[in-house]
Simulated scan of single mutants.
Amino acid sequence: MTHDRKPAPEQIREARQENPDMRERDFARDLGISEADYIAAHVGAEGPLTARRILPFARELLGLLPKLGEVMSLTRNDSAVHETIGTFGRFMSSGGAAAAFGDNINLRLFFKHWAHGFAVEKRDNDTVKRSLQFFDPAGEAVQKIHLRPESDLAAFEALVTRLISSDQSQTVSTAPYPPAPEDAVTVDNFARRDDLRELWTGMTDVHQFWDILQKINVPRRVAVHCVGEDCAWPLAGDAIDRVLAAVSASGTETMCFVGSRGCTQIYGGPIGTVRPMGPWLNVMDPKFHLHLRTDHIAEVWALRRPIAEGQLSSVEAYDAQGRLVIQFFGARRNGQDEPAEWRAIVDALERRPHPQAA
Rank of each mutant, 00 (worst) to 15 (best):
F111C: 03
P149F: 03
L153Q: 13
Q133F: 00
K129E: 11
D126F: 10
R130V: 00
K129F: 04
V142K: 01
D136F: 01
D103G: 12
D136L: 03
I145S: 03
F110E: 11
F135R: 04
K129D: 11
I105E: 12
H113Q: 09
L159F: 08
I105D: 09
A138G: 14
E150H: 04
L159A: 09
D124S: 12
T127P: 00
R148V: 10
A158Q: 14
R130C: 00
P137A: 02
A155Y: 05
I105L: 14
A119H: 04
S151N: 05
K144T: 10
A155N: 07
G117N: 05
F111E: 12
L109W: 02
L147M: 07
L132S: 07
V142Y: 00
K122S: 10
D124A: 11
R148T: 15
A155D: 08
F135S: 06
R123K: 15
F118Q: 11
K112P: 08
N106P: 00
S151M: 02
W114P: 06
W114S: 05
K112F: 06
Q133P: 01
G139P: 03
S131F: 05
H113K: 06
F101A: 13
H146A: 11
N106V: 00
L109A: 06
Q143K: 08
D126V: 12
L109H: 04
A141D: 05
E121C: 02
D126C: 04
D124R: 14
S151Y: 02
K112Y: 08
R108P: 02
R130S: 10
A141H: 04
F135K: 02
V120P: 02
G117Q: 04
A141W: 00
I105T: 09
F134I: 06
A119D: 09
G102A: 09
I105R: 09
R123Q: 14
E140Q: 12
E140S: 12
G117R: 01
L109S: 00
F134W: 04
A158E: 15
D136W: 00
D126A: 14
D152L: 03
V142R: 02
A155K: 08
N104P: 07
L109T: 03
Q143C: 01
P137N: 05
R108F: 08
R148I: 02
I105P: 01
F156Q: 07
L159V: 03
V142I: 08
F101K: 12
L107S: 03
T127K: 15
P137S: 01
H146K: 14
Q143F: 02
A115S: 14
A154S: 15
F135N: 06
E150N: 10
V128D: 03
K112V: 07
F134S: 11
R148G: 02
F135Q: 06
T127E: 15
R123G: 05
F101H: 13
K129G: 01
V160R: 05
F111S: 07
H113S: 13
L159Q: 08
A115W: 00
N125V: 13
Q133H: 03
E121G: 00
A138W: 00
A119S: 13
D126R: 15
F110K: 08
